[in-house]
């Protein structure tokens, strides 16, 4: 089964062809930044988001690279949300038109289910049930991934996403965009214990996250010291912030694995590139006897292979959507409003 994936939920336009939901025949991303730059999903230059101009070129490039002619396709999978509605609509409309022309089904995919599918694409030994940690500029959430049916949300951020916190702290510290790699780089020479930043919700039960208070505490700390900050001050603040930002990701992941009685966790999304997170989670995994999977960076950031893979699973289940399939800026997994529409 050949599935075309189309993903345009944010600043990148991507298309991919995947066979049987597992083999990536091609995966193209049209982006201003290098695909392999960590945190690629957090691109601020919205002016680059000229999807309507690039969508047909990107899809054609993906088909050419896969050596697949459009009539050979069995289905089209497209990101229906969450994301920027204006961006989503470009990919969605193109996908619906192509599917209609070819007489094949189109299926709307939740962007985060796509990210979670990227973990299984990268590691075929990863099979549900397992815990999925989705961390990016727009998302911070823990899921229990089920073999049949949608993922179950265990907890999510109550305010800012962790990648957003990195970006905003970078701006406060005068570091460049994207904030993730910039803050991590500055943190390398800093002392993570220099400043005791608050760790909101740390004492609370459950699996929710909160990054707004931490962001505010960093802003107050910078204000207190008065600009310009010395390089060592920037390093210490960056290191202390990073420690406070990563700690709840590790502790909540461990707690979720315990509570659900599972031994595998997949970490996906742009922030999965963070080295401190990788080393701390690996350390905890060793002592507690679980396994943490991090997909390669080109699958961590936004791509269409993951959408095609997740869509192939849905199509195999017999799910398909009508031409009234719509896009949504914010929507939880499982409660996807676009799934109410039936094929025309």
């Amino acid at each position: 089964m050949l599935t075309l994936g189309v993903e345009s939920s944010c600043d990148d336009m991507a298309a991919a062809v995947v066979r049987d939901g597992r083999d990536v025949l091609s995966s193209r991303v049209e982006s201003q930044i290098d695909l392999h730059q960590p945190y690629g999903g957090v691109v601020p230059e919205l002016a680059s988001r000229d999807h309507a101009r690039t969508v047909s070129q990107v899809v054609k490039a993906a088909l050419d690279e896969a050596g697949v002619a459009p009539p050979e396709l069995d289905g089209v999978a497209v990101t229906a949300g969450p994301g920027l509605v204006g961006s989503l609509l470009v990919g969605l409309s193109f996908a619906k038109a192509l599917a209609y022309r070819l007489g094949i089904p189109v299926v709307g995919v939740h962007h985060l289910e796509g990210h979670l599918a990227s973990a299984e694409l990268a590691d075929p030994s990863l099979t549900p049930p397992y815990i999925g940690l989705v961390i990016s500029g727009g998302h911070t959430a823990l899921y229990r991934i089920e073999a049949d049916g949608p993922a179950r949300l265990l907890g999510e951020t109550r305010d800012d996403a962790v990648g957003e916190a990195f970006d905003k702290v970078a701006r406060v510290l005068g570091l460049p965009f994207p904030g993730g790699p910039a803050v991590s780089h500055a943190a390398e020479s800093g002392d993570p214990d220099a400043i005791a930043f608050p760790r909101p919700l740390a004492a609370r039960e459950g699996f929710d996250f909160s990054y707004s208070g931490l962001k505010t505490a960093v802003a107050l700390e910078v204000e207190k010291r008065r600009a310009p900050l010395a390089e060592t001050e920037v390093a210490d603040i960056a290191a202390s912030f990073e420690a406070a930002a990563i700690a709840p990701l590790v502790s909540r992941s461990r707690a979720a694995l315990r509570a659900e009685g599972l031994r595998r966790i997949a970490v996906v999304g742009g922030v999965a590139a963070n080295r401190r997170l990788r080393s701390e989670l690996a350390r905890v995994a060793r002592t507690e006897g679980f396994e943490a999977t991090f997909p390669p960076l080109d699958l961590c950031t936004d791509n269409a292979a993951m959408i095609a893979a997740a869509g192939a699973t849905l199509l195999k289940r017999g799910e398909a959507h009508g031409l009234d399939l719509n896009s949504f800026s914010r929507v939880p997994i499982g409660a996807t409003p676009w799934t109410s529409s039936a094929p025309d």
Binding site: C10, L84, G137, G138, E164, S329, R330
Partner: peptide, 12 residues
Amino acid sequence: ARVASPTFVIAS
């Protein structure tokens, strides 16, 4: 609880 920062999606 459904209302989170819209920085990433621009508008919710």
